[in-house]
Design a protein around this nucleic acid. Structure first.
Length: 424
DNA sequence: TCTGGGGTCCTAGGACCC
DNA sequence: TCTGGGGTCCTAGGACCC
């Protein structure tokens, strides 16, 4: 049996841990740049504030009900997440961390304790150790566990833990689950399924496999198998190395000049190379994209994107920034108001395998490689000690385009200054 | 005025190999 | 007129997830 442990309204719950006066009040957390709702408390959901809804369209409701609004504080949420995952891992060693707020666990070895009882213990312990409320769903496949966790969350009668074990329980649950709420069924497929009158998860589980194979392909078949109790998706305890890494941001204001775009793109490239070093990978390709607001009039819209091969696979900040500058110069067009840009590094391979490898055009590459590597190490050493931007490449500069974040809470668990403030 | 960020998998089609 | 069979790799695009 699998269980899914899912944090309730995770980002809002993180804010509440350090600010208990938010309990029982409507609370929302906004995306970067204070754009959309990315987390809502139950009270905020009840007011009709939709997931992903742009905040400015709901200003009246927010004001009228004195909704507490927070800018995204990802260092806080990431740190709270690792505490939650560590707590779960203590009580269930076979764990797959599926997202920042969800973990699958294998309950195979726990039957003699009673699965529901053990799940309740996990739920209680996570709450006690971290302050974060969770819901737990149990089923014979990951997809059924996911469905069960949804029931646990929606229906207070379950007290946070729902197990689907008998065929009767499963069928009844699937009959109440809308097809669009199945894990793996998104908007497009929902639309297609509607035309075939497939509206509930039960309908989907009974639909002709040949039709699903033809229209929803292999992923669709897997979902059907999983709903029927045949496990196709194993627990993935070891995260495979990343295949691509992306850093992108919307700008706090529109940016028109190449100079300012260069500063933004260099900053994203720098971030990508730090992520590469953290991952232990080198990138062989790099993509830069820049775009105007997608809500612009058609003639004011532009999206430029360019992918190029790196001279040699690299994780070095200077090489990555240089490549990104080249790519940017080839797609920049004057006269547009740019709202967002990003850098993607791909074709990733483990860094070790490129230790001494030369490319066809290398002359003094080996020496240069070593020097750049020590430079990166020295910079990171300094920044670990004196703060994240104590030294940086001059091209990296976020003054012009910095996203808006006007309602950010403190770094309660990751910044000494904020911890001290809290204590006072 | 104001609309997020970071990923994965799968398929089809084109180019190439022997 | 008629022209094989069995592959791989890469890319773009479309779907999905949180």
């Amino acid at each position: 049996m699998f269980a899914l442990v899912d944090c309730n309204n995770f980002y809002v719950s993180c804010e509440r841990v350090f600010n208990p006066s938010l309990t029982g009040k409507p609370v929302v957390v906004l995306s970067n740049n204070d754009g959309c709702f990315i987390a809502r408390s139950d009270e905020a959901k009840a007011l009709g504030l939709p997931m992903g809804g742009p905040a400015f369209k709901f200003r009246d409701i927010l004001k009228k009900h004195q909704v507490r609004i927070f800018s995204a504080n990802f260092p806080l949420y990431g740190d709270m997440s690792s505490r939650v995952m560590a707590t779960i891992g203590d009580l269930a060693p076979e764990i797959e961390i599926y997202s920042i707020d969800e973990a699958f666990i294998d309950l195979g070895g726990f039957s003699r304790f009673g699965l529901e009882h053990h799940a309740s213990r996990i739920r209680y312990t996570v709450r006690k150790h971290t302050g974060i409320p969770v819901s737990i769903g149990i089923g014979s496949t990951k997809t059924l566990a996911k469905a069960a966790s949804r029931m646990a969350k929606k229906n207070p009668g379950y007290e946070g833990v729902c197990m689907l074990s008998t065929q009767k329980e499963i069928s009844e649950a699937l009959a109440t689950l809308k097809v669009e709420d199945i894990w793996g069924i998104g908007r497009q497929w929902n639309r297609l399924l509607e035309t075939r009158n497939i509206r509930t998860a039960l309908d989907y589980s009974l639909a002709p496999a040949s039709w699903i194979r033809k229209n929803l392909h292999i992923p669709g078949i897997r979902i059907q198998e999983e709903l029927n109790g045949h496990s196709c998706l194993p627990l993935e305890q070891i995260r495979p190395p990343k295949q691509s890494i992306c850093t992108s941001r919307s700008f706090g204001r529109t940016v028109t000049s190449l100079d300012e775009l260069q500063q933004a793109v260099a900053t994203f490239a720098g971030k990508c190379s730090r992520k590469l070093r953290q991952e232990g990978s080198v990138a062989s390709m790099l993509t830069v994209f820049i775009c105007t607001s997608p809500f612009n009039e058609p003639h004011l819209k532009y999206r430029g994107t360019r992918t190029l091969a790196m001279l040699r696979p690299s994780q070095d900040t200077i090489s990555v920034i240089r490549a990104a500058e080249l790519a940017l110069a080839s797609i920049y067009r004057e006269g547009f108001e740019y709202k967002k840009a990003g850098v993607i590094v791909s074709g990733l391979t483990p860094a070790q395998s490129f230790g001494r490898e030369l490319t066809l055009f290398d002359t003094e590459a080996a020496a240069g490689n070593d020097r750049q590597k020590s430079l990166m190490e020295a910079m990171e050493h300094i920044n670990r000690r004196y703060g994240p931007a104590a030294v940086r490449i001059a091209a990296e500069n976020e003054n012009a385009w910095k996203p808006n974040q006007t309602m950010k809470s403190a770094h309660y668990t990751t910044g000494w200054n904020d911890i001290i403030t809290l204590g006072e």
